[in-house]
Write a protein that binds this DNA or RNA. Structure first.
Ligand SMILES: [Zn+2]
Length: 629
DNA sequence: CGCATTTGACCAGCGC
DNA sequence: GCGCTGGTCAAATGCG
């Protein structure tokens, strides 16, 4: 049941709603710009967060800053999922199971419960249960000490009895204590889980941003060099991204009439019910891909063969006519897929969105079924996702996203959505600009920079161009590389496990960096047939590697391309800096020029504790866990 | 009773 | 054309 996921307020566990919003999320998805409403029925109450979201929506162009939401990308607590009642093929999780699941944070609730945690679990103990336990505990203690001593002095005959009682009490106390410990333990585990997920999301975000920037940068260069159009003009990379986003916004505004209700009548965009053909719902009659300059990589699927606008998606952003282009771009975007591999025993990762399951299939080479979901946060939202367990390692959950949301998202969903969205865009851009339709070597080389165990894979071989973000922590990344099909690139993303909160050992992956680089570069040259970027050669890689290990942030200043490199540096900082906070600060600072260090600092200590997972669809996936476990 | 999930059927694309 | 496969639909089912 998608009911209330992400948006509803969980009264019970609200103390556990934690998130740290490092900054406003990047608006990478196309949102309708509706000024008047708070979109739809999802009881999005007006609160601080809501306000800023709307503000952002209202502006024609996305905010000039990059925002880094880090949210509870947590899975449902797996403990619950194991023993789902295994009747039938697809057992459903009982409601109880769902309840025990950590709560998904709620960004829109009115009360103070949404506020980012400023104190850690200490505060959490204030929640009813724990508090109760504590009370009981202390009360018993007092009782025991007082009464026992008194009684023993007064009467010996009763003393044995009292002794008995005493031990009983102590036992009870211990039991309570034990329970409390267990609860605490569980909570800590959840925290850790969420932390990991947050970290992963952040990584993904960084990487995709980097890639985005790189790609956009390249596109821009190409435009300047090839087209020389006065119209397109030179735009700073950062701006470029924003504009692109803005156009996406326009597009959506056009297609989906100011969201709010499912009733959106117009919207050619939501012709999704087309079994007849292109499943993409934005595919209009002429879905020619705009950017076919070099390769026409994506034109193949379109009905109208050619049109070849000279310019790729550089189009004039302001003009209303750009909506056409935006449409086309989006249609293509819809086809691009972003796949996220994450290690999770939970049936589905919580990405902050509401999903409704609409199908399940047995995939071919996989004993685990593949589940199909569509976004239900807005009526016409074209976003789909597929969830499937990895055949080899069933603890790995592969979630494949497709399409862009046409509605505002809560910050929780923003992280994943923007990541996937930008990843998709990057993929498309890369494919259009690279020689063989795979990706731009330049940007590849750049993204290779910071690294460690996580990987991003880009593959255009599939029917759909796909970016795979691998968040699984593999002890040996190289092994992963070897296992991969040759036509995919692997981009190290960053250290995987939450590093930095003291308890996570630093991955040894850093030591493997040079090898990863080597491998990735090898792949790159092998399949793209490309050279390395001008400012990036193996030697330099090694150098940079060293650098980022010691003092990552220094990198930014050293390189020419400040934007991309600063992002790289930021990622590197994350990789190198044991302090997550500092890493985040470095990331954002380097991207935005030190915009809001304070807010970061304020939020950084907030560890999400238990979060509520929503969700909806979780039970349908119970089958997965049952089959897998 | 409304809604989400389940699940068999249907459809399109692709390879043979 | 046929079979296979991935993806989607929608009636049936189940749940709250
Ligand atoms: Zn959506």
């Amino acid at each position: 049941m998608a009911k209330g996921s992400g948006l509803s307020i969980d009264q019970n566990n609200n103390s556990d709603h934690h998130f740290f919003l490092l900054h406003k999320p990047t608006v990478l998805n196309s949102f309708p710009e509706d000024h008047h409403h708070h979109h739809n029925n999802h009881n999005i109450s007006s609160s601080g967060s809501d306000t800023w979201i709307n503000n952002k929506m209202d502006s024609k162009t996305p905010p000039p800053t990059i925002q880094f939401p880090v949210y509870n990308f947590n899975h449902r607590s797996h403990d619950d999922d194991h023993h789902n009642h295994g009747h039938r093929d697809s057992p459903q999780l009982s409601d109880d199971d769902k309840r025990t699941v950590v709560d998904e944070m709620d960004f829109f609730s009115n009360g103070g419960d949404v506020k980012p945690i400023t104190t850690n679990k200490n505060n959490d103990s204030g929640e009813p249960t724990t508090g109760l336990e504590l009370n009981i505990n202390t009360g018993l203690n007092l009782l025991i000490t007082n009464t026992s001593s008194d009684q023993s002095m007064v009467d010996d005959g009763i003393s044995t009895n009292m002794e008995n009682k005493k031990t009983k009490n102590e036992f009870a106390v211990l039991q309570v204590e034990l329970d409390r410990m267990n609860a605490e333990n569980q909570r800590l585990r959840n925290m850790l889980n969420e932390l990991t997920n947050n970290y992963n999301i952040l990584q993904m975000h960084l990487v995709t941003l980097k890639q985005d920037q790189k790609v956009e940068n390249n596109n821009e260069e190409r435009v300047v060099l090839e087209d020389k159009k006065p119209n397109g003009g030179f735009v700073a990379p950062r701006q470029f991204i924003d504009l692109g986003l803005a156009s996406a916004n326009n597009n959506n505004n056009n297609t989906v009439d100011t969201s709010d209700e499912p009733s959106l009548s117009s919207s050619e965009g939501r012709s999704s019910r087309d079994r007849t053909g292109s499943p993409g719902n934005n595919n209009e009659d002429n879905t020619t891909v705009v950017f076919d300059q070099d390769k026409k990589e994506f034109v193949r699927r379109e009905d109208s063969p050619d049109q070849g606008y000279g310019a790729n998606k550089v189009p004039k952003f302001n003009s209303s006519s750009s909506s056409k282009n935006a449409d086309q771009t989006e249609a293509t975007m819809r086809k691009a897929r972003v796949s996220v591999r994450a290690r999770s025993e939970a049936p589905m990762i919580n990405d902050g969105c509401q999903w409704r399951k609409y199908g399940q299939k047995m995939a071919k080479g996989n004993p685990c079924p593949r589940a199909y979901y569509r976004c239900t946060m807005a009526a016409g939202c074209p976003v789909r996702k597929q969830v499937q367990r990895c055949a080899e390692d069933k603890t790995i959950l592969i979630t494949t996203y497709e399409g862009n949301h046409n509605h505002p998202l809560p910050p929780a969903a923003m992280a994943m959505a923007s990541t996937t969205s930008s990843a998709a865009r990057l993929l498309l851009s890369g494919s259009m600009s690279s020689a063989d339709g795979l990706m731009n070597p330049n940007f590849l080389a750049r993204t290779l920079l910071p690294c460690s165990s996580s990987m991003a894979t880009i593959s255009a071989s599939a029917p759909f161009p796909t970016v795979t973000l691998d968040l699984t922590q593999t002890p040996n990344p190289l092994q992963q590389l070897v296992q991969r099909p040759p036509n995919q690139f692997h981009i190290p993303l960053g250290p995987n496990p939450p590093h930095g909160f003291g308890n996570a050992p630093a991955p040894a992956a850093t030591s493997l960096l040079p090898q990863i680089f080597g491998q990735a570069l090898y792949n790159q040259s092998k399949f793209s047939g490309l050279q390395m970027s001008q400012d990036m050669d193996p030697a330099q890689l090694g150098h940079l590697h060293h650098h980022h290990q010691s003092q990552a942030t220094h990198q930014a200043g050293q390189n020419n391309n400040s934007l991309a490199d600063s992002v790289s540096a930021a990622t590197a900082a994350i990789a190198a800096d044991p302090n997550f906070t500092a890493a985040l600060a470095a990331a954002i600072t380097s991207i935005m020029g030190g915009a809001h260090p304070n807010s970061i600092a304020n939020n950084n200590t907030n560890l999400p504790t238990t979060t509520n997972t929503t969700t909806s669809n979780s039970n349908s996936n119970g089958k997965f866990s049952s089959e897998l476990n």
